[in-house]
Design a protein around this nucleic acid. Structure first.
Length: 427
RNA sequence: GUGGCCGUAGCUCAGUUGGCUAGAGCGCCGCGUUGUGGUCGCGGAGGUCGCGGGUUCGAAACCCGUCGGUCACCCCA
């Protein structure tokens, strides 16, 4: 621990990623973004903070996320800003601000990756700062867009190497359907004696959450409750049927989950979630849905529908680790310059610089330590080659090139070093 | 926000009913090889036992508090 006790600690729930784990993290993020690119989704970047009302109105004032999990603060001008707790509201806000709905070429397809912030109690798979990759297809109403998005997410997880993923799918119907259903469900709950406190508390915000209650007896109570499916309009039901048919034709093993209720208010019609079997309580590695009313919630005068998902990078890394994917430490460099004699330090420095310019990842340890220590460092760095800069060779305008795997070494003219490495690499 | 469990070297951990200068493995540094790594041998560095208080002749161990971590509830990706 040395003097670490004097150093201010990292913020609770804000993870550090160091080698070699950071490489695995990047690989997962890259796999997600690659998959999005294959679907024609273009990269966008939006700020990590927004005016608070973007989330209050977009995500929904009654949601847990907005009510108790946001990092909200006043800036110097007294405006209320919030660190983004999710990606969709900000991306849609940016699209509306740029006039995308009226610029034609719809739907537009966007992909993003970045950090998000929710003030929750950290646990396995849940940090206060976490990374998500997401896609949003904006301006399309056809169910084929929903199916494309769902399938892309499925394939993104496969591309990242996650096994044992299950896909849960549901339809929430349209806004009006859900309103009618909520009233009906509340009426039903009114007739139940001794509702558990958690249900009483939540039903005012969103009675659909009663389905999530694990209080004893609630399962039986909810089994007899009216079903959202019975309130879904014919149009929404037909939409859903088409999405399911398209996905099933692709062989995606989906599970219909009538209890899948997303906690963000903007969802309409299609909702879905990808769950990883190997994860613990936080087993949702991704999720999303359609949000046809979001643009209007944000103040846009016309309908501007959308569908999207977000995949959790941190959780995916966790799932991969639990599958036994430990990131093997990749070689840090391919060449390592070893100096024999302090009078050759400048020469070694120049050699390393030349190799780097030629595109060969190179390091050196010219701080006066012995050759033995330098070779040890070369080995630790995973270098394939050691380039020994010593007085004997230097006198001949050469260096010693040693293959660290085989132990073979030969003298190479200094001017021919780069090409020698290039030809050796081809063999 | 609520609850369970856990804090001993860089890492993983041991420390017997409270009792010598607090240990191991791995890692790190050096030497064996004053110009050669990965193996081996030898040596070395490194610890306010999370922190504060209490009990005791004596605390890493027991008690209280506190901070941190972790898992679960909740929520969600």
């Amino acid at each position: 621990m040395a003097d670490a006790g004097r150093v201010p600690p990292g913020v609770k729930g804000a993870p550090d990623w160091l080698p070699p784990d950071a490489a695995l993290f990047d690989a997962v993020e890259a796999a997600f973004l690659d998959t999005a690119r294959l679907g024609g989704y273009e990269r966008v970047r939006t700020p990590v903070f927004e005016h608070t009302e973007v989330f209050a109105r977009g995500v929904g004032a009654s949601t847990d996320v907005v009510q108790k999990e946001m990092y909200t603060f006043a800036d110097k001008g007294g405006r209320s800003l919030t660190l983004r707790p999710e990606g969709t509201a900000g991306v849609v806000r940016a699209a509306l601000e740029a006039g995308v709905p009226r610029s034609g070429g719809l739907p537009v397809k966007y992909a993003y990756a970045g950090e998000f912030f929710r003030h929750e109690r950290p646990q396995a798979g849940r940090q206060r700062q976490f990374t998500q990759v997401g896609v949003e297809a904006l301006g399309g109403t056809d169910p084929i867009v929903d199916a494309e998005v769902v399938l892309l997410g499925w394939e993104a997880l496969a591309r990242a190497g996650v096994r044992d993923v299950t896909l849960r799918l549901n339809t929430l119907g349209d806004r009006g359907d859900r309103g009618a259903y909520s009233e009906r469900l509340n009426a039903y709950l009114d007739g139940v004696d001794d509702l558990p406190p958690d249900v009483e508390e939540r039903r005012a915000l969103n009675p659909l959450r009663a389905f999530d209650s694990k209080a004893p007896g609630m399962a039986a109570v909810m089994a007899a409750a009216p079903l959202l499916a019975d309130f879904v309009s014919d149009a929404a039901r037909e939409h859903h049927r088409t999405v399911v048919a398209l996905l099933e034709a692709q062989g995606v093993p989906l599970t219909h989950d009538p209890r899948l209720v997303r906690g963000l208010d903007y969802y309409t019609r299609t909702t879905f979630e990808y769950q990883a079997a190997t994860l613990g309580a936080q087993n949702a590695v991704g999720g999303g849905g359609r949000y046809d009313g979001l643009a209007e919630d944000l103040g846009w005068p016309d309908p501007f529908p959308g569908v999207g998902w977000a995949l959790g990078v941190d959780r995916t890394v966790l799932a991969l680790r639990q599958q036994g994917n430990v990131a093997p430490r990749p070689p840090r460099v391919t060449a390592f310059v070893v100096v024999a004699g302090s009078q050759l330090t400048a020469e070694a420095f120049a050699t390393a610089a030349e190799l780097r310019r030629a595109g060969v990842a190179t390091d050196l340890l010219a701080d006066g330590r012995g050759v033995r220590a330098q070779f040890k460092a070369a080995d630790r760095a995973g270098a394939r080659w050691a380039v020994v800069v010593g007085p004997a060779e230097a006198a001949r305008g050469a260096v010693m090139l040693r293959d660290l795997a085989s132990g073979d070494q030969r003298e190479v003219a200094r001017a021919a070093l780069v090409s020698a490495l290039e030809t050796a690499a081809q063999e």
